Computed example of a mutant assay.
Amino acid sequence: MLFAAAWNEMKHHPGSFSLLGNNCSTHASLAFNKAGVLPSAIPGIDTPDNLYHQLIAIREGQFRSFSGFLGFTPEPGGFSIDML
């Protein structure tokens, strides 16, 4: 409920946007802060990667997180998916 309220507030009053420092990660972090999920702003530069690592660290041991990339290799009749 608090997370959704934070997003709704930003929807009506989005403020400024900047690539470094006031971006989508910053706004997501603000919503997590207002919802009580995260205790502070993103450590370091506001990037999706730093936000992800902050979320993982704050909930360490409470769940498992898997991340990575998918690659696609062309094959006759379609493609195969490679987990990287």
Rank of each mutant, 00 (worst) to 15 (best):
49 D>F: 08
43 P>C: 05
43 P>S: 12
11 K>Q: 06
51 L>V: 01
37 V>P: 03
2 L>T: 02
19 L>C: 11
44 G>M: 06
37 V>W: 13
27 H>F: 11
43 P>A: 05
65 S>D: 08
10 M>Y: 11
72 F>P: 08
71 G>L: 15
38 L>G: 00
65 S>N: 15
73 T>P: 02
80 S>E: 07
53 H>W: 07
11 K>I: 02
18 S>G: 08
49 D>P: 04
4 A>R: 10
32 F>K: 02
15 G>R: 05
49 D>V: 10
54 Q>H: 12
9 E>P: 03
44 G>K: 07
26 T>S: 12
27 H>E: 10
34 K>D: 09
9 E>V: 03
57 A>Q: 12
16 S>Q: 06
26 T>K: 12
19 L>F: 14
80 S>H: 12
11 K>D: 11
46 D>I: 07
44 G>E: 08
35 A>C: 14
50 N>C: 11
69 F>S: 12
41 A>N: 04
32 F>Q: 01
37 V>K: 09
46 D>F: 03
39 P>R: 00
26 T>V: 08
36 G>V: 01
21 G>T: 09
26 T>W: 08
5 A>Q: 14
50 N>W: 13
77 G>E: 02
72 F>S: 14
82 D>Y: 05
31 A>S: 12
13 H>I: 03
50 N>H: 09
17 F>N: 02
15 G>Y: 01
59 R>M: 13
73 T>S: 06
12 H>K: 01
3 F>P: 03
78 G>W: 09
53 H>S: 12
78 G>N: 09
30 L>H: 10
6 A>Q: 10
12 H>G: 00
38 L>Q: 00
41 A>F: 05
35 A>M: 12
10 M>L: 10
84 L>Q: 01
5 A>G: 08
58 I>V: 14
58 I>D: 03
71 G>Q: 14
61 G>M: 08
7 W>C: 04
37 V>Q: 04
75 E>F: 14
64 R>E: 07
66 F>M: 13
40 S>P: 06
15 G>T: 01
75 E>T: 15
16 S>R: 06
20 L>F: 01
68 G>L: 05
19 L>R: 14
63 F>N: 14
81 I>N: 06
57 A>H: 14
36 G>L: 00
70 L>W: 12
14 P>R: 10
4 A>F: 06
15 G>N: 00
81 I>V: 12
69 F>P: 02
50 N>A: 14
44 G>R: 04
18 S>P: 04
35 A>W: 14
51 L>M: 01
42 I>T: 01
56 I>H: 09
40 S>V: 07
36 G>W: 01
45 I>Y: 13
81 I>A: 10
23 N>R: 00
4 A>G: 12
41 A>C: 02
28 A>F: 04
5 A>W: 11
12 H>T: 01
79 F>H: 15
48 P>W: 09
68 G>H: 05
42 I>E: 00
61 G>N: 11
5 A>S: 13
26 T>N: 10
35 A>Q: 08
66 F>E: 12
14 P>Y: 09
77 G>L: 05
14 P>M: 06
66 F>R: 13
18 S>M: 11
48 P>K: 02
23 N>K: 00
